[in-house]
Each structure stands twice: as structure tokens, then as C-alpha cells.
């Protein structure tokens, strides 16, 4: 019975068409080659929000392939009768495989909405988001969300939460449990396997949420202000730990935040957004060495310059307002 379930799970792979995926990857590989001219002396790339002009590979020598493409996405919300709010206006963005990309902007700029569109949780009013060349129409295990609100299953223990995804994917209980225990240890929660979410602090909950999402091996992590609800100390610890974890397998990460420090510290690329309507202002490559260590980075003049420059750019725009 279990073996049968297992077999069914592996047959139902999320992507049906292997050929399309390959051709999408090949196409994406060739696109960036002719658009690398935008890098400036100090290693910082400041480019306009037109996709054709700023699409450049992150920092690696080999051109990375695009995993997510967002093409002319707009989102209109109906706020009240006959009153429409343009949350996102004509957003185009390409995320390369293995890149850590932050979407930075003031609250209300639609940055979370953009993430939800990539997640398939929200359908854009117009335009389209694609993963590996496939249009995104629904959520799927290839894109794993981590929310500010944790969204853990409170009736499941820490272990139960982390095992949920693999079990759903048809992994056998014993195997799922072994993997989940390893992940729980990796996020620093060994010994808490049988605790319920209610017994954990905010930081611990977010660690569980991260482990739960990593457990089903999504290709892309979608992090929606994951550390926004945590106190400053906890937030720093989690940022450090997230980087350590990320540096092991370099999953593609799309990270929404309103903290400039956080975006610069974590990312390869920062997408700056302005609000009303939500637009991409600028995309900035963060050319800082990895692995990044917080205590070194904070003293690094280049890091400081990124932070100050980005803050200044937000200050300059009247309509956007500075992100806090």
C-alpha cells in the first residue's frame, strides 16, 4: 500500500514536459551574453528597470541560466466599489538559477504580491510569470514559500511539520523522518522534534518553517519578509544561519524585505521597488565576496557604500519614501 503510494508520487512529477524545460533553459543561457555591459567600475550595477538592459549574470564566470522569468506582470486590486488600485505595474524580471535575489521596497509597493505571483498563490491581472519556461498557474513543490507569519501547522509537532511535505510527495515515513531530523538539526533545533509550534519562540518557529520548506526540496525558496516579525537579535542570528545554509547548496532564493541592510547582506542582487504603482526602480548587483561573515562585512566600506547608496536612492524619490 505504502510502496504503491510512493510509486505514484514519483510518477506525478510536477513538470510534464521535459523538452520545454530544456529549451527554456537553453534559451535563457544565451540571453544574458549580450547584455553584460552595464557593470560599472566599483562593481555595482545600476541599471534601469527595463528587462532587456539589466539582465546580466550575477557574479559567476559562467552565465547562469534563468530559472524564473516575470514578463510584464501587472496586478490590480479592487479596493472599494469602482476604485482600482494598481499594485504592480508592468514588472519584468529574470532570476537566475542559484541566485539570492532580494526584492526591496517600502510597504505597499507590491513586493509581497510579486512573490505570491511567482508562488502561484495570486494570479496576475496581466502578464505572466514562468519557471523554467513553464507558465506559473498554481502553487507547486518546485517553489517553497516561507512566510513572515510562519504558517506552521499548529497541530503537528516540529517533526510532523517538517515531515509533512516529503510525506505528501510520497516519501516513505522512515526516510522522511530521517531527512527531517537531519534538517531540524541543521536549523539548530535538535532536541525540539516533539515540541508543538505553540511551545516555540518566534525565531524557532521560523527555523521550523524554513526546515519544513527545505524538506520537500523546492528549486526556489520564496521568502516573504521571513524575519520581519522577529526582534533585532534573533533576526541577525537567523540571517547568519540562513546564509550558512544557503551557501551549502545555493538554491535560488527570492527574498522580500523592507530592510536595506538585510537585502545587501544576503543578496547577489537587490531589486529596488517604488510604490503607487509598484514598479522596479533599479536592480543592483551586490558584488561582495562570499562566504559573507557579518562581523567582517559590517566593517567593509563596500558593504557600507551599498547600504548608503540604496538608502539615498530611496530618499531621493518623493513618491516612494524610504524603506524603514
Amino acid at each position: 500500500m505504502k510502496a504503491q503510494q510512493n510509486g505514484r508520487g514519483s510518477n506525478d512529477a510536477p513538470h510534464g514536459c521535459e523538452n520545454d524545460r530544456l529549451s527554456g533553459r537553453l534559451l535563457a543561457k544565451f540571453v544574458p551574453l549580450n547584455v553584460r555591459a552595464s557593470e560599472t567600475e566599483d562593481g555595482m550595477t545600476v541599471v534601469p528597470a527595463r528587462p532587456s538592459e539589466w539582465m546580466s549574470p550575477v557574479t559567476s564566470q559562467e552565465p547562469a541560466s534563468a530559472i524564473i522569468e516575470i514578463n510584464h506582470v501587472s496586478q490590480v486590486f479592487q479596493t472599494s466599489a469602482r476604485k482600482d488600485h494598481l499594485a504592480l505595474s508592468d514588472i519584468s524580471l529574470t532570476i537566475e538559477e542559484g541566485a539570492f535575489v532580494s526584492i526591496l521596497g517600502p510597504s505597499g509597493c507590491g513586493k509581497s504580491t510579486l512573490l505570491y505571483i511567482v508562488g502561484g498563490f495570486v494570479s496576475p491581472t496581466s502578464g505572466m510569470a514562468k519557471i523554467r519556461g513553464h507558465a506559473i498557474t498554481a502553487p507547486g513543490p518546485d517553489r517553497g514559500p516561507v512566510f513572515q507569519e510562519f504558517a506552521l501547522f499548529p497541530w503537528k509537532t516540529v517533526l510532523g511539520n517538517v515531515m509533512y511535505g516529503p510525506r505528501q510527495q510520497g516519501v516513505r515515513t522512515a526516510e522522511a523522518e530521517a531527512q527531517s531530523r537531519a534538517l531540524i538539526e541543521m536549523v539548530g533545533l535538535k532536541g525540539f522534534e516533539n515540541f508543538f509550534p505553540k511551545e516555540l519562540s518566534g525565531g524557532m518557529k521560523q527555523r521550523v518553517a524554513l526546515a519544513r520548506t527545505l524538506a520537500y526540496h523546492p528549486e526556489v525558496l520564496l521568502m516573504d519578509e521571513p524575519f520581519g516579525a522577529l526582534d533585532a537579535h534573533t533576526r541577525t542570528r537567523l540571517q547568519n544561519d540562513l546564509l550558512n545554509i544557503w551557501e551549502r547548496d545555493r538554491k535560488t532564493v527570492l527574498f522580500v524585505t523592507h530592510s536595506v541592510d538585510e537585502a545587501v547582506f544576503l543578496s547577489d542582487k537587490v531589486v529596488m521597488m517604488s510604490k503607487s504603482p509598484g514598479r522596479i526602480r533599479q536592480v543592483i548587483d551586490i558584488d561582495l565576496p562570499r562566504p559573507r561573515r557579518r562581523n567582517e562585512l559590517l566593517l567593509d566600506p563596500q558593504y557600507q557604500k551599498y547600504v548608503v547608496d540604496i538608502e539615498r536612492m530611496f530618499d531621493e524619490s518623493d513618491e516612494a519614501g524610504a524603506p524603514t
Partner: peptide
């Protein structure tokens, strides 16, 4: 029920 909890489930393939 928190919407995000349902989204988390949807992402896992429920």
C-alpha cells in the same frame, strides 16, 4: 484559518 497555512499546503502539493 490562516491563508498562508493553506498556501503552504498548496505548495506541498495538497
Amino acid at each position: 484559518v490562516e491563508e498562508k497555512m493553506l498556501w503552504s499546503g498548496a505548495a506541498m502539493g495538497l
